[in-house]
Design a protein around this nucleic acid. Structure first.
Length: 540
DNA sequence: ATGTCC
């Protein structure tokens, strides 16, 4: 079922995403947008190619670092520099253990790292980093949008039915998401249940019948909870939100999409690459799905800020703070109270994010139900890409990297047969992919979380007006602003800000998804199951 | 990515 237009070595399952070519007027490159942020891997002498789909990053600390990226993936030298700086944290850990009074624990270490093909520069640590440590926890290796992730639901609707109702759906979803239509009622007791015990906790505690809710959602949440439900001892860090005004009738936070690259999208299965797995997962051609990309809004930021404040305050006097600002927790007794506060707030934020993706999916269900008939939507997966996983004193941190377990990692659960669903969204207007993971140890069983930014934020704000207009003519984008409304469109200041933000997320600000997905497939990290194309995008 | 400060 692979696209015959793709040429490539027979060994690498070739993927030809139709994203760049299929929507005939879609801008695939932007001559006016700034270039020069990325190079091909062979132009960066710090990288060593070890295979068709693999590079290594030799470093003075001798930490094994594998990068999954074929020759066609553009890489950002600034992000390579950032990755090298991160590895110096190994030295920080040594000095911190020595300088911490009474530290007698095992030597804290960075044992392994991997970069996914979408990696690009982040705030201190590249987005697309997988980091394994022992006896040390790095909040910044998760990122401040704790449990940002993807949720995919498969509906019983066909693309034709949705396409015929797009105008009405657009109005309906605008109302649901941006005009007070979501009306998600949560009592303080329910908010606390969500933050402490996650979505299963909330739904099993006796869910209110929100629009779109199905009783089976509780079972689904339990079945699929895995790492997304983090029990927390307390939700004290978020007492304000739990008890905030609005309470039982309306919540102004939950149900928000967020900004940046976050979205909720109606898509359909355009191509099947792995018929057996696609059939098992309900991803048959023409099937409509809802895809949600969102995080913990302000909660993760608060958790992260709390941790960093504690780390700075407890930093040993006389030990210089690392230049890159990456501060680790040691697993010693002295840092335990602060670490506990962070772990609880982290768990609260992670639970909020997964719950919020559920509520965003409910809004999509409600919109579909009102315009197209019962979508009978069932979650395929909720995949966190900013999170850490703990196994004793070993931590696997993923920042902008998504789990891609294989049969072994998924044994005993609903994904044992085909491996873990890996949701890789393309840039706006482009195809997205569902893949299945193979548990490849070279990436610590991780895949990328998207196409990856190619042009830094801010830089991409310049130029690209013609391309943005072409994009907006081609694709249906629902935003808080109706740019086609004559009154709104006359507010030049408002429209300028809106266009600036949208341009930062435009297709030309991102890498092509094709070589990225081909790297995952060829490298044996995850193989494509189905390709999805957008019908309607809701942008926060 | 976030929501807010000057």
């Amino acid at each position: 079922m692979l696209n015959p237009r793709t040429s490539g070595p027979a060994r690498s399952p070739a993927v030809a995403p139709s994203a760049r070519t299929a929507p005939s007027r879609a801008p695939s490159r932007a001559p006016s947008s700034p270039e020069g942020f990325t190079v091909s891997a062979r132009q960066d002498p710090r990288l060593a190619r070890t295979g068709e789909h693999w590079l290594s990053l030799p470093n003075p600390r001798g930490v094994p670092v594998e990068i999954c990226a074929g020759a066609g993936v553009p890489l950002e030298p600034a992000a390579v520099t950032e990755a090298l700086a991160l590895l110096e944290t190994a030295g920080t850990l040594e000095r911190l253990a020595e300088a911490t009074p009474g530290y007698t624990g095992p030597e804290p270490r960075i044992t392994r790292a991997a970069l996914t093909p979408d990696f690009h520069k982040g705030a201190g640590i590249p987005i697309g980093t997988v980091l394994e440590t022992e006896h040390a926890l790095l909040p910044q290796a998760v990122g401040s949008d704790v449990n940002c992730g993807m949720r995919l639901e498969v509906t019983a609707l066909r693309a034709g039915r949705v396409r015929a109702r797009l105008d009405a759906l657009e109005r309906r979803l605008r109302h649901l998401f941006f005009e007070g239509g979501r009306r998600i009622a949560l009592t303080p007791v329910q908010r606390e249940a969500l933050l402490r015990d996650g979505l299963p906790g909330l739904l099993l505690a006796g869910a209110a019948p929100w629009r779109g809710f199905r009783p089976e959602d509780a079972d689904d949440a339990l079945d699929r909870a895995h790492a997304c439900a983090h029990p927390a001892a307390t939700a004290a860090a978020f007492a304000d939100w739990i008890g905030s005004a609005g309470g039982a009738s309306h919540d102004s936070v939950i149900g928000g999409i967020g900004g940046g690259n976050h979205f909720a999208e109606l898509q359909y299965v355009a191509e099947v690459h792995d018929p057996a797995a696609a059939h098992a997962w309900g991803l048959t051609p023409g099937t409509v799905v809802t895809m949600v990309h969102s995080g913990s809004l302000s909660l993760g930021h608060q958790a992260n800020a709390t941790a960093l404040d504690a780390l700075r305050a407890g930093w040993p006097a006389g030990l210089p703070r690392p230049r890159d600002g990456v501060l680790p927790f040691l697993l010693d007794e002295r840092s335990e109270p602060a670490r506990r506060r962070y772990l609880d707030a982290f768990a609260n934020a992670a639970n909020f994010a997964a719950g919020n993706r559920y509520f965003l999916s409910l809004a999509m269900r409600a919109g579909l139900a009102a315009e197209c008939g019962d979508p009978d939507a069932r979650p395929l997966y909720d995949a966190p890409h900013n999170l850490f996983w703990r196994d004793g004193d070993r931590f696997v941190h993923r920042k902008g990297a998504t789990p891609a377990g294989g049969h072994a990692e998924m044994a005993g659960g609903p994904y044992a047969m085909w491996g873990e669903p890996v949701i890789v969204p393309g840039s706006m207007g482009a195809s997205s992919f569902v893949l299945r993971g193979h548990g490849n140890p070279r990436t610590l069983a991780s895949a990328c979380h998207g196409a990856g930014r190619r042009v830094p934020r801010g830089a991409s704000a310049r130029g690209g007006d013609a391309e943005l207009d072409a994009f907006l003519r081609e694709f249906r984008v629902v935003t808080p602003l109706d740019h086609r409304d004559p009154v709104t469109a006359r507010r030049r200041d408002v429209m300028a800000a809106w266009r600036r933000d949208l341009k930062q997320e435009a297709p030309w600000a991102y890498k092509d998804i094709g070589p990225v997905v081909s790297s995952l497939a060829g490298g044996g990290v995850a193989t494509p199951v189905a390709e999805l194309r957008p019908l309607l995008t809701v942008k926060g």
